[in-house]
Design a protein around this nucleic acid. Structure first.
Length: 306
RNA sequence: GGUAUCGUAGCUCAGUAGGUAGAGCAACGGACUGAAAAUCCGUGUGUCGCUGGUUCGAUCCCGGCCGAUACCA
């Protein structure tokens, strides 16, 4: 029995995603205002404190207007991952759905959104020693050695994984070594039932318009002081959180590997490619309803689905 | 106005002793189970400036036109 009287059927998590620079932030805020609710961010780099300009994080006015979760809540040095995110989001959603019928989850990190909407199998975080060990195997033996080991410890996964992708192989090895069973044997592809409905909305605009928006947004970031923001992180540049478009290119410039102009062009190029990968990811999920970023149209669509 | 050089993919350019063309970058498509703004895989997308001529056949040779650049006036 649900004590509050708010049945699970009426609870809705509204997903608003789309490629970078398409205009997710303002649509999400309009939607949240309309339903008098709050926003959970699904942006794997806006999690980190201080990465404000380079990640186009919501402005302070926006944060005051609508309460946001998962924006600037981590330190650059903090290790974080999708599983932790899934766990933390579900916990906060429990709280939010007590007060709200509708909650908005917005961002461009498809994998993170997927973890919330579709769930991921319960697998361990590899412990630091094993991670370091596997990393060393890669450093010394390269891809060849990784492949050889995967064939030994998890031949089933070796059949289906991209054997040119060291990251995939290393993860499988970490888990296999740690658990003593093949990684693939732990993948059961469970799809947990969530105690709320999910409405998936994706935003997009014609590609050339998106590219124009990306290019001019990068220029705007530079004018807003991106260089200084990135410079302040220079000592921490090796943390994964800073392996990010807009930061790595400027680190290269600081290292004398490129001119500032080249770095800016590279940020634009890499942002365009990032946007394309995001679109590829979203297209795979046929449950998404695509819209141009028009808040009014989207709000009335949501109303019609509640 | 004259002379010279150039005009080939989105950009920079290569090339074909005449058989409709290829590099780099950009772009496009895809994969994705704890690094995901990460990581990895794949794909030439073209009236060879326009227009006549020679030729079985012209991006290539010849003429004219248009455009760009340099030099001379």
């Amino acid at each position: 029995m649900v004590a509050s009287g708010t049945s699970e059927r009426s609870k809705f998590l509204i997903i608003i995603t789309g490629p970078t620079a398409v205009g997710k932030t303002s649509v999400a805020i309009e939607v949240a205002k309309h339903f008098n609710t709050e926003i959970i961010s699904a942006d794997s780099r806006q999690f980190y404190k201080g990465m404000v300009i380079g990640t186009a994080a919501p402005a302070i006015e926006d944060l005051e207007l609508v309460k946001h979760y998962f924006v600037g809540h981590l330190e650059i040095e903090n290790y974080f991952n999708v599983a932790k995110y899934e766990h933390d989001v579900l916990q906060i959603l429990d709280q939010l759905f007590i007060k709200h019928r509708v909650v908005v989850l917005t961002g461009g990190s498809g994998f993170y959104i997927h973890a919330v909407t579709n769930g991921i199998d319960e697998l361990p975080d590899a412990d630091d020693q094993i991670r370091a060990h596997v990393q060393e195997i890669y450093n010394e033996g390269g891809l060849t050695e990784l492949r050889r080991m995967l064939l030994k410890y998890d031949p089933v996964y070796a059949e289906k994984v991209d054997m040119a992708n060291p990251v995939r192989i290393m993860r499988a090895l970490e888990v296999s070594l740690q658990m003593g069973v093949p990684y693939s044997s732990l993948l059961i592809n469970s799809k947990p039932k969530r105690p709320f409905n999910i409405l998936k909305i994706a935003l997009n605009i014609p590609r050339n318009e998106l590219h124009n928006r990306i290019n001019s947004r990068v220029d705007a970031m530079i004018n807003s002081g991106l260089e200084e923001e990135v410079r302040s992180f220079y000592p921490k540049r090796n943390f994964n959180s800073l392996n990010t478009v807009g930061y790595r290119e400027l680190f290269d410039y600081f290292d004398g590997l490129s001119t500032k102009e080249e770095a800016i062009e590279k940020i634009k190029t890499n942002t365009r490619r990032y946007a394309r990968r995001q679109i590829t990811w979203i297209k795979r999920d046929k449950e998404y309803h695509w819209f141009v970023p028009d808040s009014k149209v989207i709000i009335s669509y949501i109303e019609s689905q509640l």
